[in-house]
Design a protein around this nucleic acid. Structure first.
Lengths: 239, 239
DNA sequence: GAGTGGTCTAGACCACTGT
DNA sequence: CAGTGGTCTAGACCACTCT
């Protein structure tokens, strides 16, 4: 039990309000001057906390205007799994989205294991197909925890894909990715217009806000047509 | 052309010496007190620069002892592609390594494209097999830029895998990963003891120090037996 | 005990930017 | 022009850890 330092305390309190959604993206956070009054400390101390948050990308700082909660970069800029729509458009191809199935049910044991839920709460199951240039690009199979995102029950997902919807509802979340190569199942092969057994790249993503599981998604890409790219540097520009 | 701030200048100078290898891992860097004299500034300023380097993992700071260039975490803690040996051992299986082929040649056009070399300089080509629990685990096909790592020409790689060797020679480097699913080629299937066409996970990594290409490696894993896991959080502990 | 980094203060001046 | 963040100073005290 060690006493956290003051700038850590300030950082964590602000971070908590951002992650909880209390301060959604775009919110102006208090000026440094105001925070020195709130916490009874010098400006250097709040500056250190805010500078840290800015470096992590949780806030943006603008002279004369103040500091604002950032718009989260879709999922992760590190592992370049963006919104599939952006992904397709950046390839210079037309994008289309088609809902294949949508159903609500109490979570089965399998569902619970996938999404990381303890109990058998209500989940929304969605299957959809993302297309690029008129051809199947990616099969999406998703579970949404309706306790975490009750608004999803009222969303048809007939034209809006689950990804963008969830990004709006739950802007800040942590994610675990699991990437595998598998032979296409009969169903996946049918939807993706492949021969059964074709090598496919499968990305499974488990998303949570704090301790609350939000969604599980399995994205199946035709293998040879798709690659994930990730950049790592020991040194990053300071901005 | 904007003047960089003083703490950025300090940070970049130290970073440069670490990345270039002038200060290899374990080197003690000057005390804050000494740096204030060197740069003629206050301690807060050098503290900001060193704190930044510590947060990026380039240095470790110890009270009373000083600050030291860190031992680089093998490849990347983010995308969990560690040393394959560690990977196998952490699965609780026996590890073995076998060199299949080693040859030196001027880079072909294909080599040059893969490794990112402009000219047709000398490269070392290596093929090796990593085993786990007596079974094939991963096929490694590698090119090493001998201009960047001339020491590699004298290393037989008969018992030491290229990965650990390079990590020692070129401790700090940036990497680009490209992850795909492919059907096993005839050669890969033979080495990995698979039926040809089996879905495999292929990780291609291009590594550089600054602008100098160091190595290109293609790792082929039997698909169903292997998954890459990556964690992403909006908020990370400060340490 | 001594030397290091960790943190903090109470100022200061400057650069940028929106009005 | 005024208000914000960006940077920096010249101190200070404390916590930790090595000897």
């Amino acid at each position: 039990m060690k006493e956290p330092s003051l700038h850590q305390t300030i950082l964590q309190e602000i971070e908590g309000r951002i992650l909880s959604g209390e301060w959604p993206p775009g919110t102006r956070i208090p000026f440094e001057h105001e925070l020195t009054v709130t916490y009874g400390c010098s400006r250097m101390t709040v500056n250190k906390a805010l500078g840290e948050l800015a470096q992590r990308g949780l806030i943006e700082r603008r002279r004369k205007s103040g500091s604002f909660v950032a718009q989260p970069v879709a999922q992760s800029a590190l592992l370049d799994i963006r919104d599939i729509r952006d992904e397709v458009l950046s390839l210079g191809q037309d994008y289309d989205y088609r809902l294949l199935q949508r159903s609500q049910r109490p979570a089965t044991h399998a569902d619970a294991a996938l999404i990381g839920l303890p109990a058998a709460e209500n989940v929304l199951s969605i299957t959809a197909l993302h297309g690029a240039g008129g051809r199947p690009f990616c099969l999406e199979e998703r579970l949404i925890n309706l306790s975490a995102v009750p608004e999803a029950a009222d969303e048809p997902f007939s034209t809006l894909a689950p990804g963008p919807f969830l990004l709006k509802q739950v802007p800040w979340s942590s994610a675990e990715h699991r990437i595998r190569a598998v032979a296409a199942s009969a169903a996946a092969a049918r939807h993706l217009d492949l021969a059964p057994g074709t090598a496919c790249l499968v990305v499974e993503r488990r998303t949570a806000t704090g301790d609350m599981p939000v969604t599980f998604v399995r994205l199946t890409y035709p293998g040879s047509l798709h690659a994930l790219v990730a950049q790592f540097s020991p040194a990053q520009a300071m901005g």
